[in-house]
Every structure is written in structure tokens, then in C-alpha cells.
Design a protein around this nucleic acid. Structure first.
Lengths: 234, 234
DNA sequence: CACGTTGGTAAACACCGTTAATTTTCTGGG
DNA sequence: CCCAGAAAATTAACGGTGTTTACCAACGTG
């Protein structure tokens, strides 16, 4: 029973913990991502994890941050693979990659964009996760900027915008530091709502009442949006 | 032989349990809706609830059914309050009521339309809940039928539809027993995706990165959809 | 070597869903 | 009226959860 000379105990790392949590999330679902399960998988006990995260919720929030980064990188990779001048190609790359990532990582997507988790009401409380989420959002915004710079399709003038909307658009524009006109910001956010709305409904199975494969409907939506922003099919 | 009376008492108790669960859901959130909490609130112990529901999940599913019914009734009430010929008014009543109900009952909405719950993967397993969900969906479909009957705006011909989409639309049309052309079904579902997508994003706080009040954006979307289906602002 | 820091353990608390055995309560029939 | 039996509730327990507390063992450095 005596262990003799103990092996040098390799200390766990935050990365290792996060990866283990990710593995459990994929294999067994979000409700299985418990401190005890993570610790078990790593050959430790649950309280040891408190050396690295102040709570279970904080651990999950950190996971959210790394997932945002992964998604952001995937988007950048696919966008960069498109010829520089091909704006429509970039638009399709970004939106299709987003949908594909969501469908191939449903449980991770649920963590990022699903119902705020029980006990993790505001995921964006965590600074790390919030910054990663911001970077994710900026990916689409910057694409939109590039797109509008290359092809400034007509947008509604500022004066014609709903005043209630205008102040919010202006505040958001300031927070991201862009110079796009407010009418363009409105366009951007309308597009984003359609994109994320459609993807979320599909991923969470809320289109299953009618579709087993909503892809053609998604593509139809993409074409509408593309036309909307001056990227109609040639 | 006194089964009638006993049945009534039993039914009343199921209602009482469901109402208690609802109260806890509203006051303390979905993660607080535990068997022990419900029983505590009713002055009983948790195992007693197994006389009425075979499991916690089944209890929640039953709650889902009653919530669908409540929402459906709210929609019917508001739609009926609109003059019979005012199709645009009915459209706005339905969509605005849906959004308002969602915002005023965020936690209930999350139960109906959020990320499938841990352990309650498929809410529609329960026959009662499934039928209630169906009835809810039919509310919008029947409105759409009435709308198209009174004002048959142009829809794409069946031959022009994506074949992959066509078969699914046909299957869905059969399952709900309507006579609308497939192009019209496509329109209907596109509208539904935009409506529910926008409401879900708002309710779950996924527009908070830019908006503290997404209502004007929602109204903008409604006008787009209304125009799309021949109900443009007069 | 002694010491504090670091990173782990074990035990315990209060909660959860669920099951089994048991007790209480109610009801119907003699 | 009383009593058997069903119905409905209880208590106790199992294994699970997040979290706190106290403790311990190895390490790096003075």
C-alpha cells in the first residue's frame, strides 16, 4: 500500500481542465460537465479544481471564451481563403462557416448562443469570455465594413431612421469604433438577426416540425440577404 | 364507482402542481423548478409527486403543454379582437402578441423555445405537449391561410422551388392538412423563421451587445415581412 | 535544514431525482 | 358503527451535484 517514492505530480493546467470539460461537453452533453466529472476524467478530485476556477460557472464561462476564439479563428480562416476581391464569396464563406460550425458543434453552440444557462445567467460577466465574444462579433462587422467600402450599396439616411433606433445604433457604433453610417449599421444588424436567428432555430431543433434539412431554406435566406446588401448572385 | 369524483380531485391536484411549478419558474427560474421545491411549496414531500407524474421531466413536459395552450389562447384572443376584414391588423396582432408574451414570460418562453433542456431533450415526446405545440403552430398557419385566401399575393410556382425544399414543404403541408400552394408554404415558413428568430434572440439577450430595446428593429422586420406578404402599410 | 507556498486530498453540508418500505388517511360495504 | 383495503402520503436511503473546510504532502528557496 505504501506508494514508495511518489512520482512528481504534474500539476493540472487551466488549458487541460478546459479541454477536458470540452471533451465531456461533446461526448455527454452540457449537463454532464460537472466538476466531479472533469476531475474524475483528469484523475483528481473536484475541490482541486477550485485552485484554478473560483466556481463551476466561472469554469464554464472560460470554456465559452475559448469556444468563441475557436469559432472566430474558423471564420477568419475560411474568409481569408477567398480571393481578396470576391466580396460575395467572403460573405458566403462567413455565413456558411458560421452555420456549419454551429451544426457540427451543436452543444458548444448552445453554450455560446443558447438559453442563458441555469446559474450562468450572464455569460458575459467574465471579462475573458466577453472579450472573446466581442472579437467574434467584430469578425462579422469588419467583413461588413470591407464589403461596404468596396460596394457602398444605398442605405437609409440617418434622418429617416427611427429615433429610438438611432441612439442605440450610434452607441453601438461608438462601442466598436467604426465609421459606417448609421443606416449601414442598421443593415448590418438586420442581417445579423436573420443569420443568427435562422441558425439558432435550426441548431436547437425548432424547425424540425417542418424540416429535417433546413439547408435550402437557409440558402434562400442567404440569397435574400446578399441581394439586400448588393451581393446578388451574378 | 365513484371514479368520477376521484378523477376530479386527482385532476385538480395535477393542476395545482403545475401551477406551483409555474410560480416557482417565474419567481426563481428554471433551475429552481425541482420536485422538492414544488412539494415544499405545497406542503408535501417530493416522492408524493410521483403519484401524479412519473418523473420530473414529465412534469416539466406537462407544464410545457399548458404554457403552449396559454400562449395559443392569448393569440386567439388578440386576433379575434381585430375587425374581421383587417388582415394587416390580424397579422400585427398575432406577431406583436407573440413577442409581448415572450418578453413578459421570458422563462416560460425559454421552456417552450429555448435550448432543449438538460434531461428533457425532446419536449415533444409527451403527447400532450406535442399536441399543444401543434395547436400553437396551427394558429399562425390558419391566420396565414385566411390571409392568403383574402389576398392571394404572388408566390413562386411549385416548379421553381428547390426540389429538396419541395418535398419537405409537401410533407409538412400534408401533416397539417392545408391546401395552400407549396410556394405559399415556403413564404409562411420563411416568415415564421424571421419572427421566431428575432423574438428568441431578443428574449435570450443575444441582441444586448447592441440594443437595450430591440423593439424598433422588430417593428422594422415586421414591416418587411408584411410587405413581403402583401400587407404593406397603407 | 526549516519554512512558506503550491496543489492536492478527505470529509462534510445542503441540495437534487429517484426508489423502496412504511405509515397515515380516506372510503365503501357489511 | 366498524373495519378491511385502497389511496396518498411519509421517512429513509442511494448516488449524484457545487461548495467549504481542514488537512497533508511535496517543492523551491532562504
Amino acid at each position: 500500500m505504501t506508494l514508495g517514492r511518489r512520482e512528481r505530480v504534474r500539476a493540472a493546467t487551466i488549458v487541460e481542465i478546459t479541454e477536458t470539460a470540452r471533451k465531456i461537453l461533446i461526448d455527454e452533453g452540457p449537463e454532464a460537465v460537472t466538476l466531479r466529472a472533469i476531475a474524475r476524467e483528469m484523475g483528481m478530485t473536484a475541490p482541486a479544481l477550485y485552485r484554478y476556477f473560483p466556481s463551476h460557472a466561472e469554469l464554464v464561462r472560460h470554456m465559452v471564451g475559448t469556444l468563441f476564439n475557436e469559432l472566430t479563428i474558423a471564420l477568419h480562416t475560411e474568409i481569408k481563403a477567398v480571393p481578396h476581391a470576391d466580396m460575395r464569396g467572403k460573405f458566403l464563406a462567413a455565413t456558411l462557416t458560421f452555420r456549419r460550425w454551429a451544426l457540427e458543434h451543436r452543444r458548444e453552440y448552445a453554450l455560446l448562443f443558447g438559453t442563458p444557462f441555469p446559474g450562468i445567467e450572464d455569460v458575459y460577466t467574465d471579462d475573458f469570455a466577453a472579450e472573446c465574444g466581442r472579437q467574434f462579433g467584430l469578425t462579422f462587422l469588419h467583413l461588413f465594413e470591407e464589403l461596404w467600402a468596396g460596394n457602398p450599396f444605398p442605405v437609409p439616411p440617418e434622418e429617416s431612421l427611427d429615433p429610438r433606433l438611432r441612439v442605440q445604433l450610434a452607441r453601438y457604433r461608438d462601442s466598436v469604433g467604426t465609421a459606417l453610417p448609421l443606416g449601414c449599421m442598421q443593415f448590418f444588424l438586420q442581417c445579423w438577426v436573420r443569420l443568427q436567428g435562422a441558425v439558432s432555430l435550426e441548431v436547437f431543433g425548432h424547425l424540425a416540425f417542418a424540416f429535417d434539412d433546413p439547408e435550402p431554406l437557409f440558402l434562400l435566406m442567404l440569397e435574400e440577404v446578399a441581394t439586400h446588401i448588393g451581393l446578388a448572385k451574378p
